[in-house]
Design a binder for these strands. Sequence first.
DNA 1: CCAGTGATGGGACTTGGTCTCATCGACCGG
DNA 2: CCGGTCGATGAGACCAAGTCCCATCACTGG
Lengths: 189, 189
Amino acid sequence: MARWQPDAPGRLAAAALDLFEEHGYESTTVIEIAERAGLTKSTFFRYFPDKREVLFGGGTVAGLLVEGIASAPPAAGPLDAVAEGLEALGQTFFTVERREFSGRRQAVLNAHTELREREALKRIDLTASMIEALDRRGVPSLTAHVAAKLGSLVWEIAYDRWIDTDNSEDFGPLARRALAEVRAAGAVC
Amino acid sequence: MARWQPDAPGRLAAAALDLFEEHGYESTTVIEIAERAGLTKSTFFRYFPDKREVLFGGGTVAGLLVEGIASAPPAAGPLDAVAEGLEALGQTFFTVERREFSGRRQAVLNAHTELREREALKRIDLTASMIEALDRRGVPSLTAHVAAKLGSLVWEIAYDRWIDTDNSEDFGPLARRALAEVRAAGAVC
DNA sequence: CCAGTGATGGGACTTGGTCTCATCGACCGG
DNA sequence: CCGGTCGATGAGACCAAGTCCCATCACTGG
């Protein structure tokens, strides 16, 4: 028999989301999170560098997106390459099982500035990753910057719609549609 | 004779920037900042909600930008309206006197994740302000989103170049040029 | 002379976050 | 069966950020 329950980080994240929903982010203590997960403060900080990060565990996202961009057909334009990356993300990360969790998580995020701040940083770092990936495709720097910013916007729009409970479309098609809309809007700027 | 030295927030901000440059952000204490400014921790937190915010005092920026966008000629397209806003900013906020301070401040910001994170949040909030301002001009939502994102990119590029010590051009012209480049890059996405 | 006001100081208190050391079952070689 | 190592966890001291409440004290107007 195992000495410890499995998946400590997962239990911590789940406990945290529950408590944040129940009492709000600021009013719940790291100690409370750890206790609900059957652990202690020490262990919490062993897995997460700070309290906010417990809601940002999935660090594989950037990697998947970058891979997707890299493996787009060489002839594809920069924005199409980003679309390819988003598509890849939709198939491996934004799966149906993750949808409900993502929605709950996002509601908590939107409600607390401290968490929105962390989200903002993640988005910027992600945009930087996209720029790098495009750079490796030979896209000129400025074009890469523009494509990454637009790609980030496409992501936001598609993600919002994907989370929306009235909706049950997969992430991939949503991203494709959002991309087309953004492109059309960009043409009239 | 005045009972207190004038401009407590300004003294705190100056002291903070000095100390951050000397010892780094994390290794300098709020108490140290306050002491160098001839004040106390209590007073520091009376003027700034947290330690990071001491480097983000100029809260008028968003207002100026929004005004500039609002007062652009009605015929101007969304991105041109944003350019108008940036121009306004260049004349009232990004003045020559502020250039050296901005450069020092930016160097500190770039060196510390915690500060980059706050900057990321400010940028997102600013983008939201731009979207609102464009919305009030009757720009359709999606177009406003695209224009705001591109405007934010133009801001970044122009600001970088403005700070660059090899350069001494004013912010307005730099923004104009950056806008043209971004537009050209956008056309090939 | 006196009461009110406003910027500041002082200090207790909570919590996030770091660090170091102790614990203890599992596993492994003999 | 035995002893030692390993790896995940616990315990608790410690520091700094941030909150709160109350004291201080010059200035002001009546």
